[in-house]
Every structure is written in C-alpha cells, then in structure tokens.
Write a protein that binds this DNA or RNA. Structure first.
Lengths: 243, 243
DNA sequence: CGGACTGTTGAGAAATTTCAATGTTGGTGG
DNA sequence: CCACCAACATTGAAATTTCTCAACAGTCCG
C-alpha cells in the first residue's frame, strides 16, 4: 500500500490498518517526476498535499545572491507538504533530488479526515511535528557544529530515516546526491564538502561515492556527529541501529 | 483574555470569539516565572501545554562541548509547547529569557478540543506549522546569511512578531536580552555579535542597547536582512510595517 | 572520441573565533 | 551618597575555519 511507510515505527503513532487504508483511499493520483523537477513553487496556492512514495525530495530557498539552502530532505514515506494544507501555500520550493514517485491527496479529503477521524487527524499533525523537530536539529547543526559534524550528522540522520523505511542496511544506503546537494543542505560550499568527505574517508568513518554511502564505523561516526536519534521519535520496532 | 493574542492577525486563522473563549476555559493555571527559569526540560513526560502570556521564552539545546544554540524565540501569544502534546515530550529545553507569565492547558483538554472542535483543532495545528515555517527561515539564516544578515533578520522577525502582539511600535521595541542570547540565537560568538551590533549602529540601521531595539532605518534594515515576513503568515489586519 | 558535468586539489583571502585585557553599568552594603 | 563588585560590553591581535578562484582530473553519455 502506498501509505505503508507513513509514520512507520514512530513513537505514539499507532496507525491502524484501517486508518492507513482510509489515507490510501484519499489519494487522488500517483505521479512519477524526473530528477530535479519542481514539485511545489513557493507562494502558489495549493489544493493537494503530497505523499512521497519513492525517491528523495528537498525543500529549498534561494537567496538574492544566488546562494541556495536546502531546508529539509524527504525520504519515502514522508508526507511532504502537509504544511500547505492549512497554510494554503508554502513559503519555499520543493524539488525532486532524484527521480521520484508522488501520491497526491486533495485538501478536501484531508479536511474531511480531520473532521471525522480525530485520531488519524492527530497523526497527520504529528508528522508535521516530527518535521519541525528535524528542523530544530538542523538549526543546531548549522548554528553550532563544524563542517565535519554537520556532514556526519546529516549522514546519520538519513541512515536512521532510511533504515525505518527499509531502504538502508547496517552498512550503508543509496543516496544519489551531488556533492553540491550536500553543500546546500549543510550550508557549506561544494569545495569544502569535498574536503570534508575526504576527511570522513581518511578517518575511516564513511565513504560517499557514486551515490552510495558506505558506513565504515557507525559508532565513531555517531560520536563525531553527536547524533542522538531521539528527535526522530522512532519506536522500539525500528531497527536497533537506527535508534 | 489570556488567549487574545493567540494566532492574532494570521492569514487563514479566523478564530471566533467563542473558540478563543473555549481555549481560555481550557487553561488550568497561570504562573509567573523568573528570568532564566527552566520551563520544560528535554525528554521529561509532559501533561500540559503552555501558552506564553507575557515575556520571552527560548527553546535551546546544548552541545557536549558547552556550545548552546537557541532554536526558537517565543513572544507573547505563542502557544509554546503544543509540540509536546502529541509527541509526549520535547527533545529540547525551554527557558524564560526574561520574567514571563505562562498559562497551562492540560493535554486532556487539548485532545477533547481536537475531537469536538475540528476547526479550533486545525488552528492549533496551524500554530505549530507557523513555528515550523519560522524554523525554516532560521535554517536559511544560519546556513547562508552573514553575521550581519542573520542579526538584522532576527531583529526584523522579532519586530514583526511583536508588532502583531502590540508590543512594538514603528521605531522599535523592548528586548531585554544579553548579547550572548543573540549570539546563541544566531550561531555566533558574543564577541562577534558585539562587533556586528556596532556595524548596525555605524550604518545607522539599528541600535540595540540596554534591552531596547531602536530601529533607525527600517527599509535599509530589511534590505540588509533580506527580510520578507511572508513566512510569518500575517494577514492584512496586521500593522503595515510588520508585513 | 568529445563534451559537459562533477569531483579534486592548491593557494590565498575573508569571515569568524579565541584569548586576553580593559571599560561600563547597575546594584548593594556601608 | 559613595565605593565596590559582579556581570556585561568593548576592543585588539592572532589563530582557525571556511570560502573563493582557478586549474586540472574523472566519468558518463551520446
């Protein structure tokens, strides 16, 4: 089912099969988009929200001088623009980082759900709260962690999230990003990301190469990243190395 | 009424008087706390959510090496830990930056509201979505703006938010913070904040002194900050210079 | 095989931090 | 009312991190 990854293995998020089905029924359309395709432009009125079924999607904003900052990275199972449901539009852009498959849920149906299924409605709310918790962890990273810490933290976060989605194993995961994507996520330049990746490699912590993250020393990587996945609100059914 | 500032002048947030009253009735207790007092500690189970009535509150996180990052600053009218309602606890701390007055709403009552008042429930959700939008703007600031831009942006944001709360006029506002608080919010050192404040003063944009922000050139300040308040989702009833 | 991206490396520049000293201010007790 | 103290703010100089610019190497794809 298209919704089977949504809020999977999250603490306090016990979605019943019938609720999952209810959500799946609310999907009006499924679409494949190409890598780098725009999904949502800032400030445009929205009438659908989007569930990410496959691929990676970023939220980003550009500054007048051309600098780009990625605000969030979404993985399969994320309900990526639930924020637009109540806000009516987003104040940032969303684009596919890789080829992706999207499922659309009309806002009307979401409203219906919030009126007739309070628990499911709260779970939708909850998924936006987890997004916010991730935002806060990024604020900490960008504000106070070194380049090495930021990058290591990002790799740890994606590992934990992809593990829950069944898209990573203990050794690593596929991540078909450019170094410049990592730079835009970490608030650094591509050149410096390149040097920092080299450092991770030298220290035998992690190797990022041709779209694949190979984790060599999970424990030390976590230590360098100061990574504690508690903010992802995973529950005890998530793989142990994601927690 | 204690709830009169909640979601005031926000786009798509038409709270009726009776809804405001319903929320006010849900308040179990009002408490005054001293400056620097802890309000919520990370990972402790929560049974109340908190509405900030008066004063400033920060969300923050400390790193093992002692560095602190402020994740968000709350102003009167903000429902500050609604996030804890569904998540059960917060993954960060909250503390008063100044003396503050807090109104507590038990989670039971919030649950009741989401079950019996879908629209009010959505508005609570919405207030957490605006928090998330502010988080994203901070991510952009920390990732891509210079020290001067970050600080200017923070002052602009607080101006707009306090203006809506009726706590700022066109010339400035009271902000009884230390330079080290600004440093923790901007991801910079207190020393550099000090030099950056001097720059804002020299350029005749803004003067921060003894807990008061005096805005000298609103238009140029906004330009330096690259500030566009659209992410705050203010509506047309907000003062024009806040929008 | 030729481009067009993408990744890698080096050297110098810029922004920010660190360390350390010196001013200022506001409050307190005498 | 003054002297003093503690906390906070300011300044300078050197160190560090990250950026910028520029060249060059790899890789993928038609």
């Amino acid at each position: 089912m298209l919704t089977s990854r949504f809020l999977k293995s999250r603490r306090h998020a016990d979605l019943s099969d019938s609720e999952r089905a209810r959500l799946a029924e609310a999907i009006s359309e499924v679409e494949a988009v190409a890598a780098r395709a725009d999904i949502v432009r800032a400030h445009r009125p929205l009438t659908n929200s989007t569930l990410l079924v496959e691929g990676f999607v970023s939220r980003y904003l550009d500054l007048p001088d051309g600098k780009r900052q990625i605000l969030a990275i979404h993985v399969p199972g994320d309900f990526i623009d639930l924020h637009g449901f109540l806000l009516g539009s987003l104040e940032h852009n969303m684009a596919a980082l890789t080829p992706a498959r999207l499922a659309y849920v009309p806002h009307d149906r979401l409203r219906e759900i919030t009126e007739t299924e309070p628990h499911l409605g709260r779970m939708l709310w909850m998924s936006t709260l987890i997004d916010a918790a991730i935002h806060r962890e990024w604020i900490l990273s960008l504000g106070r962690r070194s380049a090495l810490g930021r990058l290591a933290h990002l790799f740890c976060e994606l590992h934990a999230r992809l593990r829950v989605a069944g898209l990573a194993d203990a050794d690593g995961y596929d991540l078909p990003f450019l170094q410049s994507d990592l730079a835009d996520a970490c608030g650094l330049t591509p050149v410096h990301i390149n040097r920092t990746l080299a450092q991770l490699r030298e220290r035998k912590l992690l190797d990022f190469r041709r779209g694949r993250v190979a984790i060599h020393d999970h424990a030390r990587l976590r230590a360098v990243a100061d990574f504690d996945p508690i903010y992802l609100h995973l529950d005890s059914s998530a793989p142990a190395d994601a927690r």
